[in-house]
Design a protein around this nucleic acid. Structure first.
Lengths: 220, 220
DNA sequence: ATTACTAGCGTACGAGTAA
DNA sequence: TTTACTCGTACGCTAGTAA
């Protein structure tokens, strides 16, 4: 097993160039970089050499040291894992219950300007109506956080002689149905999610007012 | 300071999904994942919460836990650092001394087939002659390693009624002059580097036989 | 200068357990 | 079930030092 302290040494050596060639350094230097004594650094290096993660050549002063193939692999594995983590750090679950909307949503989203934008940005033409989900109090901070994120933006536009405000969208999944949460930039609500979908969510999922739902938001 | 053990906890939590949302887990579970006891995991989590790297909500059983912004930054910094390491893990220095060649190189590299290939692969038309560098014994294993690497390949081709063998090239830098090391795939020498360059290296750098040189090979 | 051994100490671990 | 406290122990640290 490679413990985190071992990885730290491998990383510091890699930063000095020991990934692809021998570097000329000393146990004291390495100790300083990782915040331990010369003695501890020496012991740990020795251990890594014994286990095949480092190769080195000694000289009367200092030493030539580089990562052996298994040492490089340790770091590469970390890189791959972190890449994957950030690549798939993509969803957030928000719970709430279905509530009756004001009927406003229907008017707005069916404006041709929005319809066209939804199609471009989300890849579907929404059913003309929103499903409103009252967010469970504990999850409201998540909604606030969502609003801080990029999301997919529909810019404000002018049509029919008036201005339609910018809207931020997040793709989502509700009970296995493709949908999206939409946030008019002007609003500051954090207790209601407005969901749109190519189908009528309420009917498709047979949702009555008060039904508990769990929305999986994709962060992209 | 975030020590490597702290990072390990953040990573394990991130793998469970705590990068972008709360996860429902227990100190025992986390302890198991990082190979420490429930007590130690509990103490370390508490410490990370105190220092602002984690946020959590307790329940009578288990807890909801996620990385706070500073915790995410710790991992992101690691990712960026590792990416940079592997992106620039690109050179290897090989030392040796100039030796007289057999004059063979000149014949081969000036064949039109090779000339054209060098131009495509290295971006320059080489001076018709090679500079031979006898590799210092300690660096010979590096040469062997180079031959294991991809490099830039010139495939074998037929011309003038005979076959010209495949050659592997590595871009290099010798005394600030752009050049390349070439390895006929058939040869198994590891004690001599054959260098080519758009200019006559020997003349440009005023190198007599026996001159000590240091070749910086780019690994790409 | 270095590396790396030995000794002694301090810290962080896990067992036991309360809430 | 959990979390997280106290406490005794042991592991890994640093200091001192030889080569």
């Amino acid at each position: 097993m490679v413990d985190p302290e071992d990885k730290e040494i491998l990383r510091q050596l890699a930063k000095l160039g020991a990934l692809s060639d021998y570097i000329y350094t000393s146990s004291g230097e390495i100790g300083r970089r990782i915040g331990v004594s010369q003695q501890t650094a020496s012991r740990r290096i020795l251990d890594l050499v014994d286990r095949g993660f480092l190769t080195r050549r000694m000289t009367p002063r200092k030493q030539f040291i580089r990562l052996a193939a298994p040492g490089v692999e340790v770091l590469r594995k970390d890189l791959v894992e972190l890449k994957a983590l950030f690549a798939t750090a993509e969803h957030m679950t928000i719970r709430g219950r279905v509530v009756a909307g004001l009927g406003e949503g229907q008017y707005y989203i069916s404006r041709p300007g929005y319809m066209k934008a939804f199609n471009e940005i989300l890849g579907f033409e929404p059913f003309p109506g929103t499903l409103n989900v009252e967010v469970e109090p504990l999850d409201r901070e998540k909604v606030a956080e969502l609003k801080e994120r990029e999301g997919r933006l529909i810019k404000e536009f002018v049509s029919e002689g008036r201005t339609f405000g910018a809207v931020k969208c997040f793709r989502a999944d509700l009970g296995g149905v493709e949908c999206a949460a939409i946030f008019p930039l002007r609003s500051h609500h954090t207790n209601v999610l407005e969901m749109i979908s190519p189908v009528q969510l309420r009917k498709k999922l047979d949702l009555a007012d008060g039904a508990d739902v769990s929305v999986r938001i994709l962060l992209d």
